[in-house]
Amino acid sequence: MIGDLFSARVIIGILASGIRLATPYLYAGLGETISQRSGVLNLGVEGQMLMGAFAGFYVALTTGNLWLALLAAGLVGALMGLLMAFVSINLQAKQGISGIGFYLFGLGLSDLLFQKLLGRVETVSGFAPLHFPWLSDLPVVGKIFFQHNILVYIAFALVPLTWFLLNRTTLGLKIRAVGENPDAADSLGVSVSRVRYFTVTLGGTLSGVAGASLSIALLNVFQQNLTSGLGFIAVALVYFGGWKPGGVLIGALLFSMVNALQLWVQTLGIPIPSEMAVMMPYLLTIVALVLAGQRSQAPSALTKSFNRE
């Protein structure tokens, strides 16, 4: 039975599932990377995802326009990000606690809107898997890489883009400076709060899109607490990835593929208790976090409010 795990259909299945499952983690994790690199820990990702997921779903259902729906999800996420920025930058609230507050706020408000505006679980026809001429029909490779919806490809494209933003642009330099040494950045004329407003709002936007990647692309439904903790895993993946976009990519893929692997372990009837199987990706994350913790440095000013003295 264990041998069945190494058959082509299982390996293809694991890789394809892993790529699909990694998508929301990538959007949310990359957004969180940008915001943490500027020194702001946003624990409200989950709440922003839920609000984005609902906004996207509702607009898709009422207008039928998926791009408009995606825009709405991004805007709602951005708004949540702006609020978070205001609370953590202007009011200088403790970032961890206010993030949890925003999570509860998003969880509650998305559910309230869902109950009042929709009132029942419905489906919507979301972004369908693409079919590339020739490529999608390739054996093995086609199934793994070329039969996903457009939001999956955008998520993966954002990995090098985020890297480029952080490491090759002036803005990226400012973001990193603000996250490492805000006093020095400030004395050089960089507006710490403006940079942080930008990163936290961008992070919120990406979290909103992460939610939409579930509600109008992968799942095409909305229900209470749709994201079910995915946003917190995305935050963990930022630590896992050592605050680097590439690290987040590796973490998201690893976590998702181990999750896909455990689904196959159960499907093939390999005699491991299901409780053990579902623990596999989490165990792996903890082990990797312990190892990664010794390797990477968090941005020095992470979670610290900036106070010009």
Binding site: L21, T227, G229, Q266, S274, V278, M279
Partner: peptide, 18 residues
């Protein structure tokens, strides 16, 4: 496939796909 959760819609959907 027992997915270990009453709320993880994404994992339930991937389990069905598997």
């Amino acid at each position: 496939n027992w997915i270990g959760s009453f709320s993880d819609v994404a994992l339930a959907s991937e389990a069905a796909q598997t």
